[in-house]
Design a binder for these strands. Structure first.
Lengths: 196, 196
DNA sequence: TGATTATTGTACCACTTGGTATGTTATGCT
DNA sequence: AGCATAACATACCAAGTGGTACAATAATCA
């Protein structure tokens, strides 16, 4: 009964996922969504409820469509292989060339609207400075005979900074100080030493 | 010449830092700032320029006041100790009880306004599910004789998830797929094996 | 004291935000 | 055909956004 819908809700949801993934929840406006989805505001509200409902539905779609690899990964024969598949698969999802970079689950509460792009870039630049400082420190260690010749200082700096970023997100999510230090415990369990 | 300022700009900047650190750049409104700083809008604009200028000044203050430990940490005698001091010091800053949790540099482009708090909590909850799934997988590995008895599965799950979070932030900042896989390379270099 | 100058408070600007009321158009059932 | 129903488009809402004009106020200098 009644008039037919002139758009495909599933297709529209896929587009919403793309927009939310790039701009985050707050950084995305209803106008951004309707424009990208090619529908009007009342159509959006009638079909998906409000903005929050729509975002939750895109989260479900995202997990179903992009994070589905995780379920299989966990079933690998060994734990080591399961974890590696998990991280490799996630790395690929994060850099899937057909989608905005990053994770909807992280960008959702992290990414910002186009208006504050300059701030975002400023923050990225400052982070890069820190990573370079650390790399330089490791290079100095190498010349001190304190860091192996066959290890890549940039790789280790990148790794350490990533640990820091992960801790920062955890802290913002309410993690305790002890929680973070346990991350450090594991992260530093294997540190390269010079063979002599 | 002229009327005296009735507030201390430095003190006001410290308050702005607290607000930005909790809410992020976009999540913080000018009204949030003036209310917390106890000054009027024109005073804010006259003293600090616009919102973007103010945020950059809080960034400088943050690095000077909270991230200053990093400079000394890098001067530790060994690289290993420098890195440990870096991560431990950062963990403490992230959970400093006198400041909102997390890092201004990360929250700045990540944290959200009070309006989208429910979404933030939803995302945190979903992340926790993943971490628990991973921990359970490691527990199963332990009963398979594939994970050491003296290793904490929760610690390793926390560590792996943190690596993932760090990669997600990197990806959102424009990191390449290769960059992320290099992080994984280092992260998995040391995986616990059962002694036999 | 009087002129100058910088800060203050109030009130406002145009614009965007998430969300809707309403009338119109297109469909299916009887 | 005629009625009921659902999606459509337009136009709107109150509230909040970053940012400012302007006049009153308080200080210093001559």
């Amino acid at each position: 009964m009644g008039r037919h819908r002139e758009f495909d809700p599933d297709e529209a949801l896929h587009i919403a996922l793309q927009v939310f993934r790039r701009r985050g929840y707050e950084g995305t406006s209803i106008s951004d969504l309707t424009e990208a989805m090619g529908i009007t505001r009342p159509s959006l509200y009638a079909t998906f409820g409000n903005k929050e409902d729509l975002f939750r539905r895109t989260l479900d779609l995202y997990e179903r469509q992009h994070l589905c690899f995780a379920h299989e990964a966990l079933q690998a024969p060994t734990a080591r292989e399961a974890v590696e598949r998990l991280l490799r698969g996630y790395a690929d999802v994060l850099t899937d060339p057909t989608s905005p970079p990053g994770c909807l689950g992280v960008n959702g509460a992290v990414a910002c609207s186009a208006a504050s792009e300059p701030i975002r870039e400023e923050l990225i630049a400052r982070r890069m400075v820190n990573e370079n400082n650390l790399r330089d420190r490791l290079e100095k260690a190498r010349s001190d005979g304190d860091f192996p010749d066959d290890e890549d200082s940039a790789d280790w700096a990148r790794y350490i900074v990533s640990i820091g970023l992960g801790m920062a997100v955890r802290a913002a999510s309410g993690a305790s100080r002890e929680d973070l230090h346990r991350v450090v415990d594991v992260a530093l369990r294997c540190w390269p030493t010079v063979s002599r």
